[in-house]
């Protein structure tokens, strides 16, 4: 049996999601922001897996797996963009990218 109630698992997932959102909002480095987005992805995955266990339906596992796939693709593209944008720069700060601001 799982160690806690379904609500406890979902609360942990919500807390992890909030911490990830906080990281996206607070950090200036695109690498840290991408990592925080990863925390948000996996927090949503935890909610899906907990719900799958509750309803004894493995569809939640499948969706978590697909989300993992999309997260991996997102990280690959995001890191490639980070490399080509920030490699010639002195600082790694998202505010330094304002070429469209005029």
């Amino acid at each position: 049996m799982p160690g806690a109630t379904l609500e406890a698992y979902l609360a942990v997932a919500a807390l992890l999601f909030g911490i990830g959102a906080m990281g996206v909002l607070l950090r200036r480095s695109p690498l840290a922001m991408l990592m925080s987005v990863e925390i948000m992805w996996s927090a949503a995955g935890l909610a899906f897996v907990a719900a799958a266990r509750w309803w004894l339906d493995m569809s939640g596992h499948i969706l978590t797996f697909l989300a993992m796939t999309v997260a991996a693709a997102e990280v690959a593209i995001g890191l490639a963009l980070v490399v080509i944008i920030f490699r010639p720069r002195e600082r790694v700060d998202v505010d330094d990218v304002h070429d469209l601001a005029g």
Binding site: S29, L31, V83, F86, R89
Partner: peptide, 20 residues
């Protein structure tokens, strides 16, 4: 994913201000 992050960290030198 994390190994990819480590590779990118080693690619981005950020000479002037390495930490945030």
């Amino acid at each position: 994913v994390m190994v990819l992050f480590l590779f990118v960290i080693s690619l981005l030198s950020a000479r002037n201000r390495p930490t945030e």
